[in-house]
């Protein structure tokens, strides 16, 4: 019985220990108390989910968002080389960037029913702890993300 409880505590501890980020995004965000964010398309600035998501990530990490300018492909390249932590925009379901970056859950959907555009955050591939943080924040602020 005691062994079982001890094992359960160990497992719970391990549950929190993994995953870690290969490039250490989460550790850097915690140490610097800031993360960089940009909008792939300036028109999404008006969407209420954008501000809610950024505030939720700030609340969860204790860091503040540092907004940077930029647009389109250049932002994805910045994500890939680690100079940008988060890009928010409306992306097609079959976005060609789907394998190059990690997309979070859909915050809201707009556009035509046959070619919907999904408002969501994009992160650097493989930064699994950071990706989980953004995914949790997305689910916390959006019903659509929770249902996805």
């Amino acid at each position: 019985m005691k062994f079982g409880i001890f094992s359960a505590f160990l497992l719970l501890g391990a549950c929190d220990a993994l995953p870690r980020d290969p490039a250490g995004t989460s550790v850097r965000v915690a140490q610097m108390q800031s993360f960089t964010v940009a909008l792939a398309d300036p028109t999404v600035h008006g969407a209420p989910e954008v501000a809610k998501l950024v505030h939720e990530i700030e609340r969860r990490t204790g860091a503040h968002a540092r907004w940077l300018p930029g647009s389109g492909e250049a932002l994805f390249r910045q994500l890939d080389d680690g100079t940008m932590d988060l890009v928010i925009g409306r992306f097609a379901a079959d976005s060609p960037w789907a394998t190059a970056v990690a997309f979070g859950p859909t915050l809201s959907t707009s556009g035509a029913t046959d070619t919907p555009l999904k408002l969501r955050a994009a992160m650097r591939n493989g930064e699994n702890r950071w990706i989980m943080t953004v995914e949790r924040a997305s689910r916390a602020i959006s019903q659509e993300a929770r249902e996805e």
């Binding site: 995953p19 490039a23 591939n125 699994n128 990706i131 989980m132």
Partner: peptide, 10 residues
């Protein structure tokens, strides 16, 4: 040097 993304589920 592909970095595999393994996210979370609910």
């Amino acid at each position: 040097a592909e970095h595999a993304t393994v996210g979370s589920i609910v």
